[in-house]
Design a protein around this nucleic acid. Structure first.
Length: 620
DNA sequence: GATTACGTAAACAAGA
DNA sequence: CTCTTGTTTACGTAAT
């Protein structure tokens, strides 16, 4: 009886958000590309343009400042923000001459990238904190301007969501609370080049970020003014008017989490438990050490990145190499960058290269492609042969769940993922809807639009097979069709190499890169259980490599983290169409149905065998 | 420039 | 009649 009454359909308020996006296509459909049209062709500059330009410059300056702060920890006195040499090759600002709104930023950057950016801002703020008695931090922030503040606030909001997630993990004991452990692993990672798993890295960083601004607050040596600047920004949403160390009814002091009903109780708790004593001070010191270690780690990883890029002919010999450790941009979230270019023949995933992936060498030529990130994201690449959607979703599910960021996946891939993630690998339309709204904050608004798109995709793509049963119809995935519809590309090495390089170019966080490496290797190791060995082999043979591997990666990785997505076994399980089809489906695609049921076992020769295995007497 | 994939909008039909 | 579900067409955009 899982009729999943449609009553629970999404009840959103499309108006509460920025009304801009409600009909995003209007902007690009009617008026043409705002970014492309105004930038290059118009010779005259309207006041609006001028304003944008100024804002852009301010943002650029701020970003570069952030970069410098994050990288050159030795130059904290650069209070001449505007005059900082424009030599940051990898900053997003440099790559996209047009204005980048926070919204665009959200869409351009993947969550890890945003995190990187946020971490840099954290570093900046830490620097400001350390400047204590000078007011430079305050002045700088003033200079950055309200626009930047708003920008920061948006990012920080997202970060808070992530921090919350980390906190949850901590509560569940999934993340060590002791910072020393993080430090140790970091140091190990630094000294031995141990590949720190992406997730771990993020967790550490998040922990750091969290503790940075919460744990330092009571530090007696820190001027509250400076801190309040940071803290007020950080705590914009959840402790507006309250205490930055208090949120969601509990104390946010690192490692505390004591429940406090109200503010008064919390204050009392704070004064009692976290008074200025040795313990509190020690905790602050520990956090500072963590931060320091992270900064060191950052520098080293940057060095390594530069060396890697040098090795990959990234022309880092240019006057402005990637000294900036983690570029704010780092768009090349190397979701799947498993192999060195030498293995280009097996293009597992050249990279998820959104429209914004640009090699440093071709930076200027592609820069315009950033501008369209405002509207519908069409990261074809991400869907096609790059992104292991399950991996990213697993890693960032909490992020997408809370942040109003459009996931960088196509509807088709999302639908497929939703279906495959379900226990029976079949979902009703309404269940698909619910999955979308459950997993993505973005899809909690504009329901008419994306629901229509979902239906459209379901109907349009042959890979989605409608199976009718007593209770109605469910949708399944025909994995063969799904794979088939992805054209074999990237067979040529040059493009691949270029993409990989360009991917690396943007400061892809080494952690991410390493994680990708680890993931891919892991997935390759794990792939046998995923599919029965002969099928796996045949699969690869059948589809001549290319993205099948990535899809394999996708599936394997899907048991990633936060969501009990699907175990490999689940993926390989044959689908039991719930409620046996009452009659032979009028489905005009019996083969597809079969394939959909068996998914991921594409070899026609196998189908016979599988037919017998299938409990669903799909073909009477 | 043609093709393809994708997203969006919309019209329409069938069924509950 | 309304709503949901499903199909189809059309159009614009971006990437190849």
């Amino acid at each position: 009886m899982m009729v999943e009454s449609a009553s629970e359909t999404i009840r959103t308020t499309p108006s509460n958000q920025n009304g801009v996006s409600s009909l995003s296509s209007q902007s690009d459909g009617g008026g043409g590309r705002e970014g492309g049209s105004n930038g290059d062709t118009n010779g005259e500059i309207s006041p609006v343009d001028l304003l944008h330009l100024q804002q852009q410059q301010a943002l650029q300056a701020a970003r570069q400042f952030l970069l410098q702060q994050a990288s050159g920890l030795n130059s904290p006195s650069s209070n001449e923000v505007k005059q900082s040499p424009v030599q940051v090759p990898v900053s997003m600002a440099m790559m996209s001459p047009q204005m980048i709104t926070p919204q665009q930023m959200q869409q351009i950057l993947s969550p890890p990238q945003l995190q990187a950016l946020l971490q840099q801002q954290q570093a900046l703020m830490l620097q400001q904190v350390r400047l204590t008695h000078t007011h430079s931090g305050w002045i700088l922030s003033k200079q950055i301007g309200s626009k930047q503040l708003a920008f920061q606030q948006q990012l920080i909001q997202m970060q808070q969501l992530q921090q919350q997630h980390i906190l949850n993990l901590q509560r569940q004991g999934l993340v060590p609370l002791q910072p020393t452990a993080a430090m140790q692993s970091l140091q190990q990672g630094t000294s031995t080049h141990t590949h720190l798993p992406h997730q771990t890295m993020l967790q550490h960083n998040n922990m750091h970020a969290h503790t940075t601004h919460t744990g330092l607050y009571p530090l007696p040596h820190v001027k509250p003014v400076n801190l309040s600047l940071c803290l007020s920004v950080h705590s914009h949403e959840e402790h507006a008017g309250s205490h930055p160390l208090y949120g969601h009814g509990e104390c946010k002091w690192p490692g505390c989490e004591a429940l406090c009903e109200d503010m008064g109780q919390f204050i009392k708790h704070l004064n009692n438990e976290h008074a200025l004593d040795d313990r509190s001070t020690a905790q602050c010191r520990v956090q500072m050490q963590v931060v320091q270690q992270l900064e060191i780690q950052l520098a080293k990883e940057s060095e390594r990145l530069q060396a890697m890029m040098t090795h990959l002919h990234m022309r880092p010999s240019e006057p402005k190499p990637f000294n900036q450790p983690v570029s704010t941009h780092c768009d090349a979230y190397p979701e799947g960058l498993p192999h060195p270019p030498t293995s280009a023949a097996t293009p597992i995933t050249p990279l998820r290269q959104g429209p914004s992936v640009i090699s440093s060498s071709s930076l200027h030529t592609h820069s315009h492609s950033h501008t369209h990130a405002v509207g519908p994201i069409r990261r074809r690449n991400s869907d096609k042969y790059c992104t292991p959607i399950a991996s990213e979703l697993a890693q960032n599910c909490e992020f997408y769940k809370n942040a109003d960021v459009r996931p960088p996946f196509t509807y088709a891939s999302l639908i497929r993922h939703a279906i495959l993630e379900s226990p029976d690998r079949q979902l009703t339309l309404n269940e698909i809807y619910n999955w979308f709204t459950r997993k993505f904050a973005y899809f909690r608004r504009n329901t008419a639009t994306w629901k229509n798109a979902v239906r459209h995709n379901l109907s349009l793509h042959k890979c989605f097979v409608r199976v009718e049963n007593v209770k109605g119809a469910v949708w399944t995935v025909d994995e063969v069709e799904y794979q088939k519809r992805r054209p074999p590309k990237m067979t040529g090495s040059p493009t691949l190499v270029k993409n990989m390089i360009s991917g690396l170019g943007f400061g892809s966080l080494n952690a991410s890169y390493q994680a990708a490496l680890a993931e891919s290797s892991l997935s390759l190791l794990n792939s046998p259980p995923l599919v029965t060995p002969p099928s796996a082999a045949s699969l690869n043979m059948l589809h001549v490599g290319h993205d099948d591997v990535s899809s394999t990666v996708e599936q394997v990785n899907s048991n990633g983290s936060c969501s009990p997505t699907l175990s490999p076994q689940q993926y390989s399980h044959p689908v039991h169409v719930k409620e046996e089809p009452t009659e032979v489906e009028e489905d005009s695609r019996p083969v597809s149905l079969l394939a959909g049921v068996t998914h991921s076992l594409p070899l026609p020769s196998d189908e016979r065998d599988l037919e017998e295995d299938l409990p669903t007497e799909e073909l009477e």
